[in-house]
Amino acid sequence: MLPPEEGASAPLPEGPFDGRQAFHAHLKTAMAEAAQQNWREIVFSDPDFADWPLGERAAIEALQAWAASGRQLVLLAQHFRVFEREHARFVSWRQSWSHIIDARACHGPGLPLVPSAIWTPTWCLRRIDLDHDRGVCGTEPERRRGLREAIDECLRHGRPAFPASTLGL
């Protein structure tokens, strides 16, 4: 077996995962791969993002490497209350890149539940058991399509949220 090339990226994970450490590792791998894979769109979806590592320096560096004109990051949540407190670096980065970020909230009686997931054109991760951080990830078209349908249903009912600036007029 040949050693990995200098600067080579880790392969995206495939299959089931179990536990917070695996969930965080998969999220970080996906963020690091975003620029390498040249993903034009990424969807981050979670009821509240409280336990995502979005405030970490490595996550912001990875998103910065990915961000460019023509890219889009969709954020979908029930609410975004934890961001100021838990993800300050992300809030600052979001202000600089607001033109490529669409943040939507979907919450209320009769509305679909927001999945905990990352969707990309070629790979996805879906956390099925939020209490134990269990889920599945992979490149299968059926899995990506099913997840995208669930996300799109929430987006149809969603409203703009998490503004880049809280300045008033």
Score class of each variant (00 low, 15 high):
Pro47Gln: 02
Leu76Glu: 06
Arg156Met: 05
His87Ser: 02
Ala164Val: 11
Phe83Asp: 02
Ile100Met: 13
Trp119Glu: 05
His99Glu: 08
Gln37Asn: 04
Ala68Trp: 03
Glu84Met: 03
Pro115Gln: 01
Thr122Asn: 07
Ile118Leu: 14
Lys28His: 10
Pro160Arg: 09
Arg159Met: 05
Arg127Gly: 00
Leu130Gly: 11
Phe23Tyr: 15
Leu12Phe: 13
His79Gly: 13
Trp52Pro: 02
Arg71Asp: 02
Gln95Leu: 09
Ala88Pro: 09
Ile118Lys: 01
Asp18Tyr: 13
Cys124Ala: 11
Asp46Tyr: 10
Pro121Ile: 12
Ser45Leu: 03
Thr166Tyr: 13
Trp93Ala: 01
Arg94Asp: 00
Gly135Met: 07
Asp18Pro: 00
Pro4Asp: 09
Pro3Thr: 12
Val114Thr: 08
Gln78Asp: 14
Lys28Cys: 07
Gly110Cys: 12
Ala58Ile: 04
Pro11Ala: 12
Glu86Leu: 15
Glu6His: 10
Pro53Ile: 06
Lys28Val: 12
Ala117Thr: 09
Ala117Lys: 06
Gly110Arg: 07
Gln21Glu: 15
His87Gln: 01
Glu142Ser: 12
Glu84Ser: 10
Phe83Asn: 01
Pro16Met: 11
Asp48Tyr: 06
Ala50Thr: 08
Leu75Thr: 13
Pro11Leu: 13
Pro16Ile: 08
